[in-house]
Design a protein around this nucleic acid. Structure first.
Length: 289
DNA sequence: CATCATGTTATAAT
DNA sequence: CATTATAACATGAT
């Protein structure tokens, strides 16, 4: 599931609970998602806190829970609790009714008076982390759509490791946070560059344009449209009835996994191979080395 | 039964 | 040191 647009969608699905008090927490403690953050600890710390903020950065999610106001003395002592979430390969968040019963692979449920926030992940590659530091994300690199992702910044990245394959750099979360396997292929295709191209041979401006176009488009086609859908049909995101809008057929996305899939522009059959450790699809005619 | 999957990480090999 | 390859993780789809 989760590349930047799916992650942003997940954030938006939980975000309406901002301002609400957590009344109870359900966990399935044996699952792997609690490997870095014991379920017991969450059970102990989260009830009676208020969800006060939601953030997304690349494939990471951060939810802030503020302790109850203790009207009297001890003014500042209590630090907000920050729970970082990573959806791994198959994780997803959704929101349902307050009395929601855990479905298969629902591992973590947060209940408020108005809704249940659910974390579902059948492969359990995702996970949670607890932060106590006030700004645990202070050192994260700029995201592709941030102002700080300047041409100068990207050029420096390319100059720093000129022999790295384009696909490998795109998958590097320290360079292109939130870009995953399909977005990386999409960016290579839009750039008309073979995924194995050493990045030193690329035009930084063209790479910046292609990656920004794909990130923007992914947010529009996946996050915006699905969120609009969720506004009218919350249940569309429950495990049993998952509706999921994806990029249009003018994108490589729609063709890359189909056997005999063709390049949307030139109609040549796509090539496939493992590059930088992941199955990669590209057009042998449009994307030359 | 075998293979593959929108991800990360530890370890080994180059 | 930097980069790449491989396996592992747990489950489902084909």
């Amino acid at each position: 599931m989760p590349e930047l647009a799916e992650v942003e969608l997940a954030r938006r699905l939980w975000h309406p609970a901002v301002g609400e008090i957590i009344t109870s927490v359900d966990t399935h403690p044996k699952t792997r998602i609690f490997r870095d953050c014991p379920a017991k600890l969450l059970q102990q710390l989260l009830p009676h806190t208020t969800l006060t903020a939601t953030r997304a950065h690349g494939k990471r999610l951060l939810f802030t829970f503020s302790p109850p106001i203790t009207n009297n003395k001890s003014p500042i002592t209590e630090v907000p609790l920050q729970v970082e979430l990573h959806l791994g390969m198959s994780g997803r968040l959704y929101a349902t009714s307050p009395d929601h019963r855990a479905e298969k692979h629902d591992h973590f449920l947060l209940r408020t008076a108005h809704r249940t926030l659910a974390y579902n992940d059948y492969r359990q590659f995702g996970g949670l982390k607890l932060h106590r530091h006030p700004d645990p994300w202070a050192d994260l690199p700029p995201q592709v759509l941030d102002r700080a992702f300047t041409l100068r910044y990207l050029s420096a990245l390319l100059d720093h490791r000129p022999r790295v394959a384009l696909k490998a750099l795109l998958l590097d979360q320290a360079a292109f946070p939130g870009v995953g396997n399909w977005m990386a292929d999409e960016i290579c295709w839009r750039l008309a560059a073979h995924p194995s191209t050493p990045v030193g041979k690329l035009d930084p401006a063209a790479l910046r344009n292609a990656s920004r176009t794909v990130c923007c488009g992914a947010l529009r086609h996946v996050a915006d449209r699905n969120f609009a859908l969720a506004g009218t049909r919350t249940e569309a995101f429950a495990p049993g009835s998952y509706v999921h809008l994806v990029p249009p057929s003018s994108w490589l996305f729609q063709h890359r996994w189909k056997p005999g899939g063709a390049c949307p522009t030139c109609k040549k059959t796509l090539s496939r191979a493992t590059i930088a450790g992941r199955t990669t699809a590209w057009c042998p005619a449009c994307q030359l080395l």
